[in-house]
Nucleic acid binder design. Structure first.
Length: 747
DNA sequence: TGTACCCAGGTTTTT
DNA sequence: CCTGGGTACA
């Protein structure tokens, strides 16, 4: 069927030549190398609109995949504005969302129960812990986090327990054993974790010829956002879905690949041109976000990376101001600098919203927060627990889950004694043991176990079972929101948190109320199931929603406030004024990423940070910083040296500072005053150019040690007599040495 | 069952 | 230094 097409000309009228080339490309594979701020989303949405308008492609033939719900929602909304045909039936979503959708439709073929539930990361960890207990493995020897990470990594490689041979070392055999038991437990409970969603969907489309043919026939065009973030499994799935005839339109930026530690493989971008025949590259290099100075800083820095696809950002909107660098005495001084500058910007007419403070580690926010609070500057921290991840919310959801799935052990264990009802760990242990021996759920064990197993606690357990049963009966006819309301009351959760004291408890009660209103608005938004989608009950839909879209991090985003976040969290955002703080070796690049292999990704992270700024970019480092309780002598980040000197100026204090004045805790009276920025030809301070350490030793310098041989200086720590130096030796590994004792010679 | 203390450990995080 | 998790007691 040909849809009524409309005039496609206005679609591309406002695009620049590179954007137009991408949008109007013939129906063939394309890799769009989209620099930061080059109109990536614009190209993606216009490409979809172009396909519909000019190529007469039905929206039903298009699959658009993103990584975050936010990006998916934005894409759909913007496409909707561009085309005048209905696109409701078009598949736009996250990898996980799309996988989930397929699994719901083909749950039989995927060998899942119709009402399967989704485990989030926290649920998964709890389940791993339980599995370890069942296998009698001590969790200090088998750290649950490590185990969960390993399992997820296997799933990302599409590896199932049965793919491992019996050989392999002891550790691996144990891992496989745990993986097996974990899978079995998931199967019994009818739950899937995040990685499993993708793996099942991949296996489904790989192994079921009919389903594979169906989707290949259907999705003629597959568009993928943030392609540099695809993991192995996602890439293979895309290839399977595309088959020989599907047309891939991938958009991404290899220079912004910062999630390799999470499985993302930037190499997939490089592989596209060979795996997808005829795939041509289109570069978007014109930047519409930042000033020329900021772009030069970014270009110069990222040029040091190897194995790039290569691109150079440019703008025609002027140079702007150079990047302003501040050498703080310590982290308090740094925070004060940030706060003062924010005040100046606000006085000059900026909103708080216009400024973002970016840091490498979440732990850096505390000192900044204190300074902001002291100055009564409103701020918001991105990151941290999201709504549906909060303890009280997960408690309530666990009760809801139990109403529908008594065999959901994860939920059972979570709330069987919340609020406390006399079912302690010993009792739960007995239940677990009984359930394990009989291959049953905890619920079944609780019902059958009886007095013989549970002794005195049996009555309490029976009460709990009766509570769940009676809540289920009472809420059978009720709407989702009424059910939720009832469950929060009847379970005793509200009383439980009512009795707790403190601000925290108050917030928890508010969150429980918020949950009720969330269910209320969710009810109103429920739409009839799309094409062939089985009608799911509202509760399952809501639980899915909760797992797949964990919600906003913090309430009140409407308020005008300074934005604090990690560099990772800043990806995809932009701000007129950006502060990058903590530009110190060991902090950024992070200590655990200072070796060659990982440095490029840190540099990309720095590149991401720089390219967030529209007009004004500040960078700062502290000469001393307290980290893990000890004061460290800091060395400026090498990234500062790697930024071309002519686009950076140092802000110099007008008055000299008496260093002793900056004793810990004493920062109030010692505020520095700032002169006007030095002219841009001001040379960088000595410290930056040479990165001199103490005693004539420099960071990164090759040195010789009498016993350990040759090595490279990684960092300095401590003061005076107690100063230590970390050296990575060729043969002897990395060591901390007392500088006064080590007698290091330049090599 | 709840709390007080001890100890280890301490990037980055979406789904 | 600060946090979270685990253990030891009241």
């Amino acid at each position: 069927m040909r849809l009524p097409s409309f005039d496609p000309a206005p679609l591309v009228g406002a695009l620049n030549p590179a954007q137009r080339e991408a949008v109007m490309a013939p129906p063939q594979h394309r890799l769009v190398l989209a620099g930061a701020g080059s109109g990536k989303t614009r190209v993606l949405t216009h490409r979809v609109a172009w396909l519909i308008a000019a190529e007469n492609v039905s929206p039903l033939s298009i699959l658009a995949v993103t990584f975050t719900n936010k990006a998916a929602a934005e894409m759909r909304a913007r496409i909707e504005q561009l085309v005048d045909v209905p696109i409701r039936a078009m598949w736009v979503g996250t990898f996980h969302g799309i996988a989930h959708r397929m699994l719901r439709m083909h749950y039989r073929e995927a060998d899942l129960p119709q009402n399967f539930q989704i485990l989030d990361a926290d649920d998964q960890l709890r389940l791993v812990k339980r599995v370890l207990k069942n296998l009698d493995l001590a969790d200090d020897q088998w750290p649950p986090k490590t185990v969960a990470g390993w399992i997820n990594a296997q799933k990302e490689e599409a590896r199932r327990p049965q793919h491992f041979s019996d050989e392999g070392d002891f550790t691996q055999r144990q891992f496989v054993r745990i993986y097996s038991a974990y899978e079995e437990s998931c199967r019994r409970q009818g739950v899937v974790d995040f990685a499993e969603l993708l793996l099942r969907a991949f296996e489904l489309t790989r192994d079921h010829a009919e389903i594979q043919a169906h989707y290949r026939r259907r999705f003629r065009h597959i568009l993928v956002d943030e392609f540099q973030d695809t993991n192995t499994l996602q890439y293979r799935w895309l290839r399977t879905l595309a088959g020989a005839d599907g047309i891939l339109f991938a958009v991404g930026d290899d220079d912004q690949s910062i999630y390799s530690w999470r499985g993302a493989r930037v190499e997939h971008m490089m592989r596209l041109t060979t795996d997808f025949p005829g795939c041509e590259i289109v570069r978007l290099e014109q930047n519409y976000r930042s000033t020329g100075m900021i772009l030069s800083a970014a270009n110069g820095l990222i040029a040091r990376n190897s194995a790039r696809l290569g691109k150079q950002l440019w703008t025609d909107s002027g140079d702007g101001e150079p990047v302003q660098l501040y050498a703080a005495y310590n982290e308090y001084d740094e925070a004060e600098f940030v706060v003062n500058r924010i005040r100046e910007h606000v006085a000059a007419g900026h909103r708080y919203d216009d400024t973002a403070v970016l840091y490498r580690m979440g732990a850096q926010s505390r000192v900044l927060e204190e300074a902001l609070i002291r100055e009564h500057i409103p701020y918001r921290i991105h990151g941290g627990l999201r709504f549906f991840e909060r303890q009280e919310i997960k408690d309530a959801l666990a009760y809801l889950r139990l109403l529908h799935h008594r065999d959901d052990d994860t939920s059972f264990e979570r709330v069987v004694n919340v609020p406390a009802r006399g079912i302690g760990s010993t009792t739960v242990e007995k239940l677990r043991e009984y359930a394990r021996r009989h291959g049953q759920s905890l619920w079944a064990a609780a019902r059958e176990g009886g007095d013989a197993v549970l002794g005195r606690a049996a009555a309490r357990v029976r009460e709990f079972l009766a509570l769940i049963e009676s809540m289920a009966a009472e809420t059978k006819e009720l709407s989702l929101s009424k059910t939720t309301e009832r469950v929060i009351e009847r379970s005793g959760l509200r009383d439980h948190y009512n009795k707790e004291k403190g601000e925290q408890a108050e917030a928890r009660l508010e969150n429980l109320d918020e949950l009720i209103s969330a269910t209320r608005s969710f009810e109103l938004s429920i739409e009839p199931p799309a094409e062939g989608q089985p009608a799911l009950d509202p509760l399952t839909q809501f639980l899915t929603h909760a797992a797949l879209e964990a919600g906003e991090q913090q309430a009140g985003p409407g308020e005008d406030c300074v934005q604090l976040m990690t560099l990772h969290a800043a990806k995809g955002l932009e701000f007129p004024v950006v502060f990058m703080v903590g530009m110190e070796h060991g902090l950024f690049p992070h200590v655990r990423a200072t070796d060659e292999g990982k440095l490029d990704e840190e540099r990309r992270l720095c590149y991401v940070g720089i390219t967030r700024a529209r007009q004004c970019l500040y960078m700062s480092y502290a000469e001393r910083r307290r980290l893990h309780g000890v004061e460290q002598l800091c060395v400026p980040s090498q990234f500062l040296r790697e930024i071309p000197h002519h686009v950076m100026v140092e802000l110099r204090p007008r008055a000299h500072v008496v260093r002793q004045a900056f004793a810990p805790g004493a920062h109030g009276p010692y505020r520095r005053e700032w002169g006007t920025p030095a002219p841009s030809h001001t040379p960088l301070p000595e410290s930056l150019r040479q990165s001199q350490g103490p005693q004539g030793l420099a960071l990164g310098q090759r040195v010789r040690h009498a016993r350990f041989g040759e090595g490279t200086i990684l960092q300095f720590d401590g003061d005076g007599e107690r100063m230590r130096v970390e050296v990575r030796f060729q043969a002897a590994g990395t060591k901390w040495l007392m500088l006064s004792v080590a007698n290091l010679q330049p090599a």
